[in-house]
């Protein structure tokens, strides 16, 4: 039986559809990722599965319990790492963990053992009695993961687990998560808009405008794009794009400095391109497709970069604050 079964799950806010009849299943011990741009409905889906938001239609079962009829059973069976920090930073790491154990009714003696183990597991043992406000972003994240493990959940939900962290910290967190899965057969459900993070998943669902537009292993999804990606920088990208369109019948994508398009055999195509293109070429690169290319091919857009999404987050935060005044 699947650990998470989602059936036609939908959510709309004042007529705005955030999640649109989404169905999928996650197997026990699997790392399942939701990949998509901000506002695609990832967080809303997680919130529904965690019983924080009530679905408008459809339902889901998590660890065998119905999210609408048996929310308390679901809550006991899951651990959550939210997108934004949810620690009390005026308390020490150990106090945060102790309060979590209390509210999840882990017996006192048992809690002591588990707290020590969780701190050690997340490489925080030496900082257990420090106030969380003095922690770095990566340490806070690790502490949140440690906390979510205290009540031994069957499913761990992670909403953008490494957002805003530096690559080294991200790798370290992933190393811990993979070890966790290997040892406990825990099921991991995560959302992300980082391509490299999606690569860690056993299977991913690509989500856009509240709908799953593709689902499979990262390898399967990339294999759908038959051929290679050509990344090209020229003296005049606009003119080069027009010429490529006319000459080879492909539609190149333009970003700040590059042209990008797909051809069946990159190694054979490049010499031809260099010979034929009327615009001076500054650089050319051929590479196998990434998940970003898959997303682009499916939607015609790229998953926005981190910088833009951070700005967006700030904007929505300011709007949220502004609501009080109006």
């Amino acid at each position: 039986m699947a650990t998470i079964e989602v059936d036609q799950l939908s959510k709309s806010f004042r007529g705005l559809v955030a999640v649109d009849h989404v169905s999928f299943a996650v197997n026990e011990g699997e790392i399942f990722g939701f990949l998509g741009p901000n506002g695609a409905g990832k967080t809303t889906t997680v919130r529904m599965l965690c019983t924080l938001t009530r679905p408008s239609a459809g339902t889901a079962r998590v660890a065998g319990w119905d999210i609408i009829r048996e929310p308390n059973q679901v809550r006991k069976a899951i651990g959550i790492i939210f997108q934004e920090p949810s620690l009390d930073d005026r308390l020490t790491a150990r106090e945060n963990l102790r309060f979590h154990a209390m509210i999840y009714k882990v017996p006192k003696e048992e809690a002591k053992i588990r707290i020590a183990r969780a701190l050690e597991w997340m490489e925080l043992s030496s900082r257990g009695d420090d106030l969380v406000r003095n922690f770095s972003g990566g340490m806070k994240r690790r502490l949140e993961i440690a906390r979510a493990l205290l009540h031994t959940p069957q499913v761990l939900f992670l909403d953008e687990p490494t957002l805003g962290l530096d690559p080294q910290t991200r790798n370290r967190i992933w190393e811990r998560l993979l070890a966790l899965r290997a040892e406990n057969r825990m099921t991991l459900f995560l959302t992300t808009h980082y391509m490299d993070e999606a690569e860690y998943c056993d299977r991913i669902a690509i989500i856009d405008y509240g709908r799953i537009i593709a689902l499979g292993t990262p390898t399967e999804l990339k294999a759908r794009l038959q051929g290679d990606q050509v990344v090209l920088m020229t003296a005049d990208n606009l003119r080069a794009a027009a010429e490529i369109r006319r000459r080879y019948g492909v539609e190149p994508a333009l970003d700040r400095e590059n042209l990008r398009f797909q051809v069946a055999d990159g190694a054979q195509f490049v010499p031809r391109l260099v010979r034929e293109l009327g615009v001076p070429i500054l650089s050319v690169m051929v590479r196998p497709p990434t998940l970003d290319d898959v997303f682009l091919a499916l939607t015609g857009r790229e998953i926005r970069d981190e910088e833009a999404s951070e700005r967006e987050k700030l904007k929505s935060r300011l709007q949220r604050m502004g609501r009080v005044w109006r």
Binding site: L52, R75, K76, I80, F82, S86, D88, I103, Y104
Partner: peptide
């Protein structure tokens, strides 16, 4: 600061 979520999602 997010801590409320931690309590609200507990059973």
């Amino acid at each position: 600061f997010g801590f409320l979520k931690e309590i609200l999602v507990a059973p």
